[in-house]
Simulated assay, not measured.
Amino acid sequence: MSTVLAAVGAVHPLAAATVNDNTPWVGPGMMGFLIVVVIGLVTWFLGKSMTKQLRKLDAGRAEQQEAEGEEEAEAAAPAPAHDPKLNGAH
C-alpha cells in the first residue's frame, strides 16, 4: 500500500494528501439536491411552453394553407362568360 501512495505522491503531490485524509466525505447535500430539482422543474415548464408555442405555429400554418387553397380554387375557377345582352350592348 505504501508503494501505491508513494507512486500517487510522485505523480501528483496533492493526490497523496487526499488519500491519507481521514475526514468523512461530504457530498452535495440538501442544497445540491434542491438546485437539481429547481433546474428540473424549470426545464419541464419550458418544455410545456415550447410545446404550446409549436402547436400555435402548426395551427397558424394550417389556417394559412386553407386560405391559400381557397384563393387558388377561386383563381382556378372559370370566369363567367361575358354575355353582351346582359349589359345592353348590341
Rank of each mutant, 00 (worst) to 15 (best):
Q64G: 06
G27R: 10
K48W: 06
E66F: 05
D21W: 03
E66H: 14
A15G: 04
L46P: 00
W25F: 12
V36F: 04
L57A: 15
T43E: 01
A59M: 06
P24V: 09
K56D: 13
L34I: 11
I35T: 12
V38W: 07
P80E: 00
M50Y: 15
D58S: 14
T43V: 05
K56H: 15
L46D: 12
V11P: 02
L14S: 11
T3K: 08
H12Q: 03
I39Q: 12
P24G: 04
A17G: 04
R55T: 07
P78Q: 06
V38E: 04
G69R: 15
I39A: 11
R55K: 05
D58T: 08
K56C: 08
P84E: 02
V19R: 09
E68A: 11
G29C: 00
V26I: 10
G29A: 02
A10W: 02
A73P: 02
V38F: 01
T18H: 08
M31A: 15
P78L: 08
A75P: 01
G27Y: 05
Q53G: 11
A15M: 05
A10Q: 03
V4I: 08
A10M: 06
Q64F: 14
P80N: 00
G47M: 07
G47F: 07
L46I: 08
V19T: 04
V38S: 02
V37C: 11
L5W: 02
R55Y: 07
A17V: 09
T51Y: 15
A79P: 08
A7I: 00
E70N: 13
N22P: 01
A16P: 00
